[in-house]
């Protein structure tokens, strides 16, 4: 029995079909060599999946953010080398804070920017995801104690191409430009919101990638023969894969809690999921590589597409340690001992 709605099952089917056709290993490889997978992005745009979970009145495909999490999980499962999460994040922030919808492929830049009251934007960011392939950049700029959400065409930036350890574009970008009046807006609390949506996106992507490496590891253990039998028949291998299955199941469950959240609790649910899934990554990638042996350590095997992304994503938008500290702060100092009361408030 599925807990997904019919609408979500349709999203999942379409997504799996497009990714299955247009995101094979070669596409991920060529993207890591610098080639934008335009056919893949084009097909996802045509089906509306790049705008899933964004309000229609803001140019989106409608639905709610849990639909977008579903798309990101699927993209993570295939290591899709596209700004699916960043496009959602940048556009969602614009929609929530009242900025008009950005044009084209959109990314979000987490950097150090400032803006003057007349719209003079300056600053830089050292790791802007997919900056070189984007049409618009959404970013947060400060003026004194105030935060502004800004949206700006990519041509306005100077871009220095860099990659993360997964070969995903994480570009240095810088800007000094006067913005038009409709390109920036005062946005209280936008930094926190961006960090939460960003962390939630990475959780979804990681849960998909973890599911994928479990499937790959189980299949490989059944195919690979040593000492005259499939290595899946050895207890040592079975026990490792069982441990991994527990971590993957917990990760998927933690990720699912985000989109079911009541509004007030969303921050804690995201924190819990990023902390829990981030911790699972180390355990699961260790086991997946151990089971795959030397073959999994090569660029030739697609396991590395998943594991390198997992290692990058667990550190982005707050590592597990960062989020654990936040959770700890929330639950600490319970002199009255009401820790349990607080825990049971989270459904």
């Amino acid at each position: 029995m599925s807990y997904l709605s019919e609408h979500q099952l349709l999203i999942q089917d379409t997504l799996n079909r497009v990714l299955g056709d247009l995101c094979p290993k070669q596409i991920v490889d060529s993207a890591e060599r610098g080639e934008f997978p335009s056919a893949l992005w084009g097909a996802l745009s045509e089906t509306g999946l790049t705008l899933t979970g964004l309000p229609e009145e803001h140019g989106g495909s409608g639905g709610d953010p849990s639909d977008a999490m579903l798309v990101m999980k699927g993209a993570g499962k295939f290591s899709a080398p596209i700004p699916i999460a960043e496009n959602f994040l940048g556009r969602m922030l614009c929609s929530e804070f009242g900025l008009s919808a950005p044009k084209g492929i959109t990314t979000f830049s987490d950097g150090s920017f400032s803006i003057s009251p007349d719209g003079m934007l300056s600053g830089s960011s050292s790791e802007t995801a997919f900056g070189r392939w984007s049409d618009s950049v959404v970013l947060i700029a400060r003026h004194g104690d105030e935060s502004y959400l800004c949206s700006c065409p990519c041509e306005a930036f100077e871009i220095n191409e860099k990659n993360n350890i997964a070969g995903e574009p994480r570009d240095e970008i810088s800007i000094k430009k006067k913005l038009l009046d409709d390109q920036f807006i005062l946005a209280e609390g936008v930094s926190r919101r961006a960090r939460l949506l960003g962390a939630a996106s990475r959780v979804a992507q990681m849960s998909g990638a973890l599911e994928s490496i479990l499937e790959m590891s189980v299949s490989y253990s059944i195919e690979r023969t040593q000492f005259g039998k499939p290595i899946s028949k050895f207890q040592a291998i079975q026990q490792q894969l069982a441990t991994m299955a527990g971590e993957v199941a917990a990760s998927i469950r933690a990720a699912q809690s985000i989109h079911l959240s009541r509004e007030l609790m969303i921050e804690l649910d995201v924190a819990i999921a990023k902390a829990r899934v981030g911790e699972a990554v180390g355990i699961c990638t260790d086991i997946a590589h151990q089971v795959h042996g030397a073959m999994g350590y090569t660029l030739e095997h697609s396991l590395n597409h998943r594991t390198r992304r997992l290692w990058a994503w667990r550190d982005e938008f707050g590592s597990e340690k960062d989020w654990q500290t936040e959770i700890g702060r929330f639950f600490s100092g319970n002199a009255s001992g009401n820790l349990w009361d607080q825990i049971t408030l989270l459904a």
Partner: peptide, 18 residues
């Protein structure tokens, strides 16, 4: 110290949900 508490609570809440 806070991160240790947070880590353990994150595990617990996830297990409870499962």
């Amino acid at each position: 110290q806070l991160s240790v508490l947070g880590r353990l609570v994150a595990h617990l809440i996830t297990l409870r949900r499962m």
